[in-house]
Amino acid sequence: MPISGLVVTFGSSVAEHADSIESIAAIPEIDLGESAGSKLAIVVDSETKRRDQEIWNTVQQLPGVIDLAVAMVAFDETAETNKLDSIRNET
């Protein structure tokens, strides 16, 4: 269940791409974050890697988007939780 922080870069100021941003905001797995100039921070929280990839492709193909960069991909949650448990349960 991937969580990723992404930076969307538009060809010009964010304010000029209201339609694309509306499309992004319409994707239920996406939270919008800060924007500045031509950049917009988003977080994608999806159920499967496949869905994550679909969202990535969708965003990348939106009009005006010239770059999509990964700021952070969260740990694979299930595996991570199990690992933490295994350490914690040692005592």
Binding site: D31, G33, S35, S38, K39
Partner: peptide
Amino acid sequence: SIGGINIAPVPPTDLGRKSV
């Protein structure tokens, strides 16, 4: 900006959603 790419923070644009 650098080379026309804005890199610095501006107040969050109101895009109809609250940022986290």
